[in-house]
Simulated assay, not measured.
Amino acid sequence: MELILIEGLPGSGKSAMAEKICEAAQVSGINSSWYLEESKVHPVHPADFKHDRHDKNYPERCLKQWAKFVSEKNHQDRLFIIEGSLFQSTVRLMLEGKNKELIADYYSECQLILSSVHPKLIYLRPIDARTHIEWTMEHRGEEWTSKVAEYLEKTPYCSEQQWQGEKCMVSFWSEYVQLCDSLISQTSMTYHTINAGYGNFESQFNKAMSHVNSEKWLSTALYRKETKCTHFLI
Rank of each mutant, 00 (worst) to 15 (best):
T90I: 14
Y106N: 04
Q111D: 01
K100Y: 04
L102M: 11
L79N: 09
C110F: 01
G84V: 10
G97R: 08
T90W: 07
T90M: 06
L79E: 02
K100L: 03
G84Y: 08
S108V: 03
E83K: 08
G97I: 09
S89G: 15
G84D: 04
T90G: 08
Q111S: 05
E109C: 06
D105I: 05
S89R: 15
I81R: 08
R78P: 06
Q88C: 01
L102Y: 07
E96F: 08
N74A: 13
R78D: 00
K98I: 02
V70M: 03
E72L: 10
Q111H: 01
E83D: 10
R92C: 14
S108D: 12
L93P: 03
Q88H: 12
N74D: 11
S89P: 07
K73N: 14
Y107T: 06
I82W: 01
L102C: 00
M94L: 15
D77W: 00
R78E: 12
D77R: 07
V91P: 06
I81E: 06
Q76Y: 06
E72T: 02
A104Q: 15
R78C: 10
N74M: 12
Q88P: 01
S85D: 13
N74Q: 14
Q88W: 02
Y106V: 04
L102R: 03
V70S: 00
V70F: 02
G84I: 12
I81A: 03
Q88T: 05
S71Q: 09
K68Y: 07
I82N: 08
L95P: 01
R92I: 02
G84S: 13
R78V: 07
S108I: 07
F80S: 05
T90Y: 06
S71T: 11
V70Y: 01
S85Q: 11
E83G: 03
Y106H: 13
I103D: 05
L102N: 03
N74E: 13
F80N: 02
F69C: 03
K100G: 11
E101A: 12
S85W: 05
R92K: 11
V70A: 03
E83R: 04
S85N: 15
S85F: 08
N99P: 00
M94H: 06
K68A: 12
R78S: 01
E101R: 08
V70L: 01
D105V: 10
F80L: 00
V91G: 03
N74C: 07
L93V: 07
S71N: 12
E109I: 07
L86P: 08
Q88E: 12
L93I: 10
R92D: 12
S89K: 15
S108A: 13
A104N: 15
K98E: 09
D105Q: 15
Q111I: 06
L86D: 07
M94A: 05
L102D: 09
R92Y: 08
G84R: 10
L79A: 00
G97C: 08
K68N: 14
F80Y: 15
G84P: 11
L79F: 06
E96P: 05
A104R: 14
N99G: 13
E96I: 05
E101W: 00
V91R: 04
D105P: 09
D77H: 06
E101G: 08
L93S: 04
H75K: 09
I82E: 01
T90E: 11
Q76N: 03
F69R: 07
S108K: 15
E96C: 12
V70Q: 05
L102S: 12
F87E: 04
I103L: 06
K98N: 11
L79H: 02
G97Y: 10
E101K: 11
E83H: 04
F69A: 05
C110D: 00
K100S: 13
